[in-house]
Amino acid sequence: MAITYSCIANGRAVLAELALTGGSYQEAAAIVLRLVLLRAEPKTIIRMGSFVYHTLCIGGITYLCATDNAMDIITPPAFLKNVSDTFLRNSLMSQEYFSPSNTVAADFQQVLGKYMAKESPKTRKISRRIWWKHFRKIIIIAVAILLSIIIIHLSANVLPT
Rank of each mutant, 00 (worst) to 15 (best):
N102M: 05
W132R: 09
K118N: 00
S120L: 08
G113R: 00
C7A: 12
Y63F: 15
I31F: 10
I138L: 00
T44M: 15
A78S: 13
M93L: 07
T62C: 01
S6L: 01
I138T: 12
V36H: 11
G22I: 08
T103L: 09
T62M: 08
I46Y: 00
I73Y: 14
I58Q: 14
E27I: 05
P121K: 05
G11F: 09
K122S: 15
M1K: 01
G49V: 04
V32L: 03
N10I: 07
W131C: 06
W131L: 07
A29Q: 02
T44Y: 10
L88P: 04
K137E: 14
W131D: 06
I45W: 12
F87G: 03
E96K: 01
L112G: 02
A105W: 00
F87I: 11
Y115Q: 03
I45L: 10
L112Y: 00
S6M: 07
E41V: 10
Y53P: 00
S24P: 12
W131Y: 13
I31R: 07
R136N: 15
R124W: 14
F108T: 02
A105P: 05
M71W: 03
A19C: 04
V111G: 03
P42R: 13
E96I: 00
F108Y: 03
V83T: 12
V36L: 08
P77G: 05
T75C: 02
L20G: 04
V32Q: 04
A16K: 01
A70V: 09
G60Y: 14
F98I: 06
K133G: 14
R124V: 15
Q95S: 13
D107V: 04
R47I: 05
L37A: 14
W132N: 04
Y53G: 04
L35A: 08
S101Q: 11
